[in-house]
Design a protein around this nucleic acid. Structure first.
Lengths: 103, 103
DNA sequence: TCAGTAGTTCGACGATCATCGTACTACGAT
DNA sequence: ATCGTAGTACGATGATCGTCGAACTACTGA
């Protein structure tokens, strides 16, 4: 098995500007919505996106470094999970507010 | 008197990506925090910001066009007010979540 | 009327960003 | 071992963005 968690900021290192900037991009917002629908985590490649694999990797890195999601390895795949608890603790209501936007 | 409201999107025209992108900029977030502390509205020039007047005007326009704030004239001054009701209706909890971030 | 104040608009400039193709790494299966 | 798959890293490029100064508009007060 030997799963490994990719580097990410601690809860107290998360900055609200970075989170908002990360969420304010259409492709990344699509990713976040997909993660919200799958609490168990989603394999990056399974999310349908209008961009190439390298751009997808770039967006996932941006979201991870902002503290929005967590990624761990699983063989050749990478499973991403929304950091709901951390975000809710830091900015209560923010995530649910965004997700309640009707597309 | 003859106050006039500057052009802004209707509630149903507000897009969440635009709102998040507008809020994800340090100077603009400072403006929003100042407005949140003054429900009656704030004159643009009264907010202390590390930018020139033209940059300030640019940020206020961005926030207004995103639907975050409303501006009306009052003589030579322009009073800006946070669109709390609209934002709360569209994205319940988002604003309070952001404002609860400890700077 | 004239000067001063508050703010916007315009063009320019440098920085950041989203996107891509290519090359690379890591793992699993044959 | 070798091949295929999943994903990352690296430049490069074109677009967007934050910033500024200068010129302009609109209103107030002397």
């Amino acid at each position: 098995m030997a799963t490994k968690v990719l580097p990410q900021p601690e809860r107290d290192e998360i900055r609200v500007e970075a989170v908002l900037q990360a969420l304010g991009e259409p492709v990344r917002l699509t990713i976040v919505r997909a993660l919200a629908d799958n609490p168990a985590g989603v394999c990056c490649g399974e999310i349908e996106l209008p961009v190439t694999a390298s751009t997808r990797a770039h967006h996932l890195k941006t979201l991870r470094e902002a503290g929005v999601l967590s990624t761990h390895t699983d063989g050749t795949r990478r499973i991403s999970i929304l950091r709901r608890e951390d975000l809710e603790a830091l900015y209560p209501g923010l995530l649910t507010g965004i997700l309640s936007a009707k597309q």
